[in-house]
Computed example of a mutant assay.
Amino acid sequence: MKKIGFIGCGNMAKAIIGGIVGKNVMAPGDIIASNRSRKALDYAEETWGISVTADNLEVAKEAEIVVLAVKPQFYGQVIGEIKGVVQESQLIVSIAPGKTLAWMEEQFGRPLKFIRCNPNTPAMVGEGITSVTPGDKVTETELARVTEILNSFGKASVVSEAMIEAVIAVSGSAPAYAFMFMEAMADGAVSLGMPRAQAYEFAAQAVLGAAKMVLETGLHPGALKDMVCSPGGTTIQAVRVLEERGLRSSVIEAMIACADKARSM
């Protein structure tokens, strides 16, 4: 029996598999994945040496942990296909927004060991942040096992189901906000004469460095911002304009809209 199986082998599944194999959390022979695209399966097999199949039922039958890694709109179809072969001893891991633990139980037609996870795309470069929400039947040992897997491509943190929408807004969708911010900074640098490629490099490294300062110093982001803002200096003038144009309120309102959409999915 395989230790973990993925139904769906898109970008997020690939990021998780890459983390598992790269950090030696599991051997490639302990992993199986299914997908409709033969190209995706060939890539996974050639890259990591895992087992692959076009049959979702094979994954559901063979894996101790079954990760549903298809798009949310296909969850109902996939669950309908596999629910008859899933055993009570297996862990069912969902990575789809909007699919509650109660919804999962209703779709499978019985209480099983469900875990909701919300990874984000930086998992593709080993810097993801993933929320972990276990159902009532999941043991502490099982939760620790799944958390170890999720830590292989970044960081994982247990959150209550009531916080899922906040997680989606602050991490799941947040890379898009960061990309837009970096793109805007690069555009500003280009307008000041910097070559485009170099502008992206400076913007991206500045954001990466700032993020590491928050995580590694433990200081409040406001305190770190104040450290850059010398009296009468250049930075405080930029901050003044950002405040004037509503940067903070725009981000907050965007996150609220994101959470509202997540609840309705």
Results as ranks from 00 to 15, higher is better:
residue 134 P to C: 11
residue 259 A to T: 08
residue 201 E to H: 02
residue 260 D to Q: 15
residue 36 R to V: 06
residue 166 A to D: 03
residue 37 S to K: 10
residue 158 V to L: 12
residue 87 Q to P: 08
residue 29 G to N: 10
residue 114 F to W: 04
residue 104 M to R: 14
residue 39 K to C: 06
residue 108 F to P: 12
residue 9 C to K: 02
residue 37 S to N: 03
residue 224 L to V: 14
residue 247 L to P: 14
residue 51 S to K: 02
residue 46 E to A: 13
residue 99 K to E: 08
residue 77 Q to C: 06
residue 123 A to N: 04
residue 103 W to H: 15
residue 248 R to W: 08
residue 96 A to N: 07
residue 262 A to I: 11
residue 257 A to D: 12
residue 95 I to W: 01
residue 210 A to E: 06
residue 142 E to F: 05
residue 148 E to W: 07
residue 23 K to A: 08
residue 32 I to M: 07
residue 200 Y to C: 00
residue 110 R to T: 14
residue 162 A to L: 11
residue 90 Q to F: 05
residue 227 M to V: 09
residue 89 S to C: 10
residue 87 Q to D: 12
residue 49 G to I: 05
residue 162 A to M: 13
residue 96 A to E: 08
residue 146 V to C: 00
residue 145 R to M: 13
residue 177 Y to C: 03
residue 183 E to V: 08
residue 247 L to T: 14
residue 51 S to R: 06
residue 111 P to F: 08
residue 204 A to P: 08
residue 145 R to T: 11
residue 164 I to S: 13
residue 91 L to C: 06
residue 216 E to H: 14
residue 113 K to Q: 12
residue 172 G to F: 00
residue 80 G to M: 02
residue 207 V to K: 01
residue 147 T to K: 12
residue 212 K to Y: 15
residue 148 E to D: 07
residue 107 Q to H: 11
residue 260 D to F: 03
residue 5 G to L: 06
residue 190 V to H: 00
residue 19 G to T: 01
residue 237 Q to H: 13
residue 265 M to T: 10
residue 261 K to G: 12
residue 203 A to G: 00
residue 10 G to P: 01
residue 52 V to C: 01
residue 1 M to G: 04
residue 99 K to Y: 09
residue 126 G to Y: 04
residue 151 N to D: 13
residue 208 L to W: 07
residue 108 F to A: 07
residue 22 G to P: 07
residue 183 E to P: 02
residue 187 D to I: 05
residue 238 A to Y: 08
residue 86 V to H: 02
residue 122 P to K: 03
residue 235 T to E: 15
residue 230 S to V: 13
residue 119 P to D: 04
residue 237 Q to G: 11
residue 104 M to W: 14
residue 120 N to K: 06
residue 78 V to R: 01
residue 112 L to C: 00
residue 101 L to M: 14
residue 133 T to S: 06
residue 171 S to V: 03
residue 250 S to V: 06
residue 81 E to H: 03
residue 8 G to E: 09
residue 25 V to E: 05
residue 65 I to Q: 01
residue 145 R to N: 08
residue 117 C to T: 12
residue 29 G to A: 10
residue 195 P to N: 00
residue 190 V to E: 09
residue 233 G to D: 15
residue 139 T to A: 09
residue 104 M to N: 08
residue 110 R to M: 13
residue 194 M to T: 11
residue 58 E to V: 10
residue 7 I to E: 01
residue 147 T to C: 09
residue 210 A to R: 09
residue 167 V to C: 09
residue 113 K to L: 12
residue 80 G to E: 11
residue 183 E to W: 00
residue 100 T to H: 11
residue 78 V to M: 08
residue 203 A to I: 00
residue 224 L to M: 15
residue 178 A to H: 04
residue 163 M to P: 05
residue 66 V to Y: 05
residue 110 R to F: 10
residue 15 A to R: 00
residue 143 L to K: 14
residue 76 G to V: 10
residue 260 D to S: 14
residue 20 I to C: 10
residue 82 I to G: 05
residue 32 I to Y: 04
residue 133 T to H: 00
residue 165 E to M: 07
residue 43 Y to D: 02
residue 264 S to E: 15
residue 81 E to K: 07
residue 80 G to F: 06
residue 123 A to R: 03
residue 181 F to I: 10
residue 106 E to A: 14
residue 106 E to W: 07
